[in-house]
């Protein structure tokens, strides 16, 4: 394994840099910019059993060092993903983490079973924490029992690693995390966006048509780091960090806190090459410090 290689719950990654679901399309939008197979992997746009149109506009707005989104999980559906997108990703040797969501346990299982029929999916990431949909979003991720039910059901439906994406809004996140671990999750992803809102005083209107949206970007990073830090000691399975990571320095914070890999999210909107630059920055850091990424994980020193 190279200095950048890591292992996340049985899945070997060439480097610890993934792209976050909902911020990187299906990975095929980058043809003009770079070869996404250079990344540790990509987490797909959240896939549902049927295609979804998403929420009415306005769907995004900027906030200080961050943004709000209320896309509403618009996606092509698992069938079209398997037919149109996955074969291309497979042919290019991209490590694919399929992010999936449903409004019922049965729905999660059905999507997983459809993916199981295809080669080229390396792990399944369960979105039990979307803040922007009425059903099947965040409520699964708030309740340890529900989260465990979904995890266990998907665990039985696939041979592949199962990751569960945590909501920062669960009351007792450690309890949800342990419930997922006990139900057979191979890794946890933390954190999804936090719900926020913005109002325009000129028009006296809420800025997003959905009123509230998921808050992301660098402003979120200290909160995400604290939660990842807590989770790392709450469970034995690996934690994949997400929340305001846009540079190698940001990634290093999370690796040092104990994350086994990181996901670049909102930063890809600012610069489509952001994730690639994180990989390059980590390579330079490891070279300069004479360390491997694996040696850095959890290596933060106490004050």
């Amino acid at each position: 394994m190279s200095a950048l290689g890591v292992e996340v719950g049985g899945l070997a990654l060439k480097n610890p840099v993934l792209t976050a679901s909902g911020t990187f399309g299906y990975g095929l939008e980058y043809d003009d910019f770079f070869d996404v197979a250079e990344l540790g992997g990509i987490c797909t746009k959240g896939l549902s059993l049927e295609p979804r149109l998403g929420n009415p506009p306005v769907r995004v707005c900027e906030t200080p060092s961050g943004m709000l989104n209320a896309i509403g999980l618009a996606n092509v559906g698992v069938e079209r993903f398997c037919v149109d997108k996955l074969p291309v990703l497979r042919a290019r040797g991209v490590t694919v983490i399929a992010n999936i969501f449903a409004s019922s346990v049965e729905g999660f299982v059905a999507i997983t079973e459809r993916l199981e029929a295809e080669a080229g999916v390396h792990a399944v990431e369960l979105n039990v924490s979307c803040p922007n949909v009425t059903h099947g979003g965040i409520e699964f991720g708030r309740d340890p029992k529900l989260a465990a039910q979904v995890t266990a059901a998907v665990r039985r439906a696939t041979r592949r690693p199962v990751w569960v994406k945590m909501s920062p809004e669960a009351g007792d996140l450690a309890a949800v995390a342990r419930a997922c671990e006990d139900a057979g999750a191979d890794a946890l992803t933390a954190i999804n966006t936090i719900r926020g809102m913005a109002i325009d005083p000129e028009t006296r209107s809420v800025r997003l048509a959905n009123r509230t949206g998921g808050f992301s970007g660098p402003a979120l990073r200290p909160v995400a780091l604290r939660i990842v830090w807590d989770l790392v000691s709450a469970v034995k399975i690996p934690v994949v960090a997400i929340g305001g990571i846009g540079t190698a320095r940001d990634a290093l914070e999370f690796l040092l806190a104990g994350a086994s890999a990181v996901q670049v999210g909102t930063a890809s909107f600012v610069d489509p090459l952001a994730a690639k630059k994180v990989v390059e920055g980590l390579a330079r850091y490891c070279e300069a410090q004479g360390v491997s990424v694996r040696e850095l994980i959890g290596g933060v020193r106490s004050p």
Partner: peptide, 17 residues
């Protein structure tokens, strides 16, 4: 003209009906 974050088809913010 719509609000958008990325400009190249991944944020899905610039939806129009």
């Amino acid at each position: 003209e719509t609000p958008m974050a990325c400009g190249y088809g991944v944020c899905l913010g610039c939806a129009f009906k």
